[in-house]
Amino acid sequence: MRPLLCLMSLALLATSATAVAGSKKPDNLVPSGKAVTCVQLRQIRNTEVRNDRTIDFHMLGGKIYRNTLPHSCPGLGFEERFMYKTSLSQLCNVDIITVLYSRGSGLDRGASCGLGKFQPMAKTPSRG
């Protein structure tokens, strides 16, 4: 069971270009509906770290949930990758993520931070 959890954690690492820690990437998303406490792990397609407090969870089927952490998580916005451990089939607002730092040919653990609720988001119409 432990190797499966590690694989799931590593598979969900946010991988994108570097960003300035604490900066907010612009987006065209607005809140849409009531926040939920958990999302199903098997439904998460990928994650997008927006800054030290914000992670967008892109789900199968196109739905996006934004998680705004209750407190800033040092290094998250710069590294844009994290891991978590859970024995459940869900990721919830009581779970903890850990920032992963690139170090040579491996990854080191950084700050551990609690998640917030998962807010459904919808794209705003583009202005033409």
Rank of each mutant, 00 (worst) to 15 (best):
R45D: 11
G33A: 02
Q40Y: 12
N67Q: 05
D27R: 13
G110Y: 03
G114T: 06
L69N: 08
P125W: 07
S126T: 01
N93E: 12
T124C: 06
R42Y: 06
D56R: 02
G22E: 08
A111C: 10
A11W: 15
C6F: 12
V94C: 10
R45W: 11
S102H: 10
G104P: 04
G104Y: 05
T98M: 06
A122K: 14
G116T: 00
G77L: 02
Q40T: 14
S126M: 07
R2C: 13
Y101L: 13
L5P: 02
L69C: 04
G106F: 09
G106L: 04
L10E: 11
M121C: 01
Q43K: 12
K123S: 07
G22Y: 09
Q90T: 14
G77V: 05
L5I: 14
N93L: 06
A19L: 13
G61P: 03
K123R: 14
I97G: 01
V39I: 14
K63I: 03
G106H: 11
T124L: 12
A21S: 12
D27H: 15
K25D: 11
R81K: 14
N51H: 01
L29M: 08
F118I: 04
E79V: 07
T47L: 10
S89E: 13
K63N: 07
Y101D: 09
G62V: 03
I96S: 05
K34V: 02
N93M: 09
L12N: 03
V20W: 11
N93T: 04
S32G: 03
S72K: 10
F82P: 00
S87I: 10
V20N: 11
F57E: 04
S16Q: 12
R127S: 13
G114K: 10
T98S: 09
P70Q: 05
L10W: 11
L107Q: 07
K85W: 15
S126Y: 04
S23N: 10
L10F: 15
T37C: 08
G128T: 14
E79M: 14
V94W: 13
I97E: 04
R53N: 13
I64L: 03
Y84P: 02
R109M: 13
V49G: 03
A35Y: 02
E48G: 00
Y84S: 06
Q40D: 13
H71G: 08
R42K: 13
K24Q: 13
S105Q: 10
Q119A: 04
L12T: 07
K24C: 08
N67W: 00
S32N: 01
E79H: 10
G116V: 04
V39Y: 09
C113K: 00
S89K: 15
S9W: 04
S87G: 11
P125I: 05
T37S: 15
A19N: 12
V30L: 03
G62I: 06
T86R: 00
H58L: 08
C6A: 13
R81I: 01
L13M: 15
E48W: 05
P125L: 11
K117I: 05
G77W: 07
E79R: 10
G116R: 01
V30Q: 07
P31V: 00
L69S: 08
A19M: 12
P31R: 07
L4E: 14
E48C: 06
H58G: 09
A35W: 05
P120H: 10
R127V: 13
G62M: 01
L4A: 13
L100N: 02
D52M: 05
M8H: 09
K34Y: 09
T124Q: 10
R103G: 07
G106C: 07
